[in-house]
Write a protein that binds this DNA or RNA. Structure first.
Lengths: 337, 337
DNA sequence: GGCCTGGAGGTATACGTATGCATGTTAGAC
DNA sequence: GTCTAACATGCATACGTATACCTCCAGGCC
């Protein structure tokens, strides 16, 4: 039914392998022959079957992307650049969305249908990376990692980011400070919290349990936690959020409660997604280059695919910085510090 | 290098075809044999090569998704449910992102690497659907369509949605009304504008050029257009936006200009994405079931793949409704109507 | 003018799976 | 006890491409 290279060969009056060679740019085929093949290809509208090619080359030119939730506004900002970077290398993108790594059907990643995998939402200690290693399927962590030295990774210095947030708050004079952190089971959640806590401790400030919230990196996490924080007898004057999406949830809860930001409440997010700069938010945040991080992951993965699998893991860690907007200010004098 | 069904066969003491049959659930293989095969599979960690399978079955169990921009907050709300619906049918998802249909490399869609295609961002008159038809690659339009009867489609009644918006405005007493529409080259942009204009005309209200803006369905479109509308000597009291993302851009511009919504300005969006219900927006909008629309598209496509390609195109059109929140109110008495 | 070199393309085959057909074995029927 | 049918499995092959290897031919060199 479909047109094959054999049909092209017949029309061009050559053998099937010559068609293959002509199309792959093999220098051994004469210019005149190549032209004949190409016109036959055009005449028939021939497109090489990738199944045939995959089988013989043992290569799919496809990369799997494992991500837990596409509707979270954060991930598209990584997946977009990732798609483009992979495309530059001739790879196409297959998306696998499951609530957690452990629910990803490993078979789909090790059946040869992808040449490599990008892990966006792996938990600490996830079994998936180990499984991929065992099967010799190249992979790279992007944004999150499941542990040190497990594999190539493109991440931001989360610890430093947490510290920067803490210093920004303490520098403004805040002392009653809260955190709405990401899950302890994620490297981003854990490291940002750790950096934040350590830098607060340097300033002699502790983080009591009532001022500590944790949850997935979603709008609702920030929204719910902020409601609870505002209901405290003595609410915090400053809140650090695990990422921008959480911060925006918090900001909405504050807005709903009629709490003015930054007058009575300061907020810092993390990531500097485009939404953070929208006028209604003007979110002060810990920024880093998402685009670059995604491209770095693509580069790491492509090199891992090309190179030997025995090279030690590489880690590209970018440096975050404070992006000051309008959700941070000195604590209100009305509030006792 | 990799483990093949032949290795499994050797270990289980059967022939390669028996392994294939055992794994595919062929009733002709004895229970005892099946058990032996299965334990050999487990012992070797065998996973069938999908390239081999694809070649012989002429099927990839993969669906291509063509979308112009993943970072637009709207599309993930379709792609998420779409992914899940396709997965329910055993299909995996390949994402192709290009600024426009015409830049999608058609070869990647007709080389047998996908069994069908979902078109999310086709322009009116796009050549891609025709090309897919010609190549007998099943496809379905989701949200947008390139023309009537071109192919299966899951869409919302955009014309009705536009009418509902107009009626809501006129019902509140607005007479100086503006529109920030989507591109005329998209079915959603065109039909929403048409319905809106027609219903306004029914109420004896025209839409002058100065009150008509158009642009892609992005934040910036709404933002820029709203700035211009607010700079008019006599700004509109109500603005209908092509979709929620545009409306949120407009809302931000209004916020930046210190224009109070809905006191002096009413706004209506389209789609009712989750973001529309955030407290800082509380956007009145034309709602419909995005989840259902995505699932409908998946069903249409799967049936098209299974069935004959000669059946006439089917079109599932869902009915939108007004979701009233806090961006609409009667026009301010200060404003001369 | 024989020999060698290199260019151009053909021949044969492999990739890993699924399946039509042939084969062998066993049990049931008469 | 032979014949047959049904069942379980093996054999052969096809899917469409890429590539190692071989062949053929022309031209240059001595």
């Amino acid at each position: 039914m479909a047109i094959t290279s054999r049909d092209v060969a017949r029309l061009a009056g050559v053998s099937q392998p010559t068609v293959s060679r002509a199309l792959r740019g093999d220098p051994r085929v004469a210019a005149e022959t190549r032209a004949r093949v190409e016109s036959a290809v055009a005449a028939l509208g021939y497109v090489p079957s990738e199944a045939g090619r995959n089988l013989v080359t043992r290569t799919a030119k496809r990369i799997g992307i494992v991500v837990s939730d596409l509707t979270n506004p954060f991930y598209p900002h990584l997946i977009g650049p990732l798609h483009d970077a992979l495309e530059d290398h001739g790879y196409r993108m297959m998306v696998f969305t499951e609530p957690s790594d452990s629910q990803v059907s490993v078979g789909q990643l090790v059946d040869g249908s992808v040449d490599g995998v990008v892990l966006l939402t792996s938990d600490v200690g996830s079994a998936l990376p180990a499984e991929l290693s065992r099967r010799r399927v190249p992979f790279v962590f992007l944004n999150r990692e499941s542990g040190p030295g497990v594999g190539d990774a493109a991440v931001v210095d989360n610890d430093l980011g947490g510290r920067l947030a803490a210093k920004h708050f303490t520098g403004l004079g805040h002392r009653r400070i809260a955190g709405i952190f990401g899950p302890q089971t994620t490297s981003t959640g854990r490291d940002r919290e750790m950096g934040f806590r350590l830098a607060l401790a340097d300033a002699g400030i502790g983080l009591s349990p009532e001022l500590t919230h944790r949850g997935s990196f979603e709008f609702d996490t920030g929204h719910r936690a902020m409601r609870e924080l505002l209901a405290l007898p003595s609410p915090p004057t400053a809140v650090f959020c695990g990422n921008d999406v959480v911060a925006i949830g918090a900001l909405n809860a504050a807005s709903a409660a009629g709490v003015r930001v930054p007058d009575v409440l300061s907020l810092i997010g993390f990531d500097d997604i485009p939404m953070a700069s929208w006028e209604v938010f003007q979110l002060t945040t810990i920024g880093h280059d998402l685009n670059l991080m995604a491209r770095s992951a693509a580069e790491l993965l492509v090199e891992r695919i090309k190179g030997s699998s025995t090279e030690p893991p590489r880690r590209i860690m970018s440096r975050p910085h404070v992006v000051e907007r309008s959700t941070t200010a000195p604590p209100s004098p009305r509030q006792p510090s």
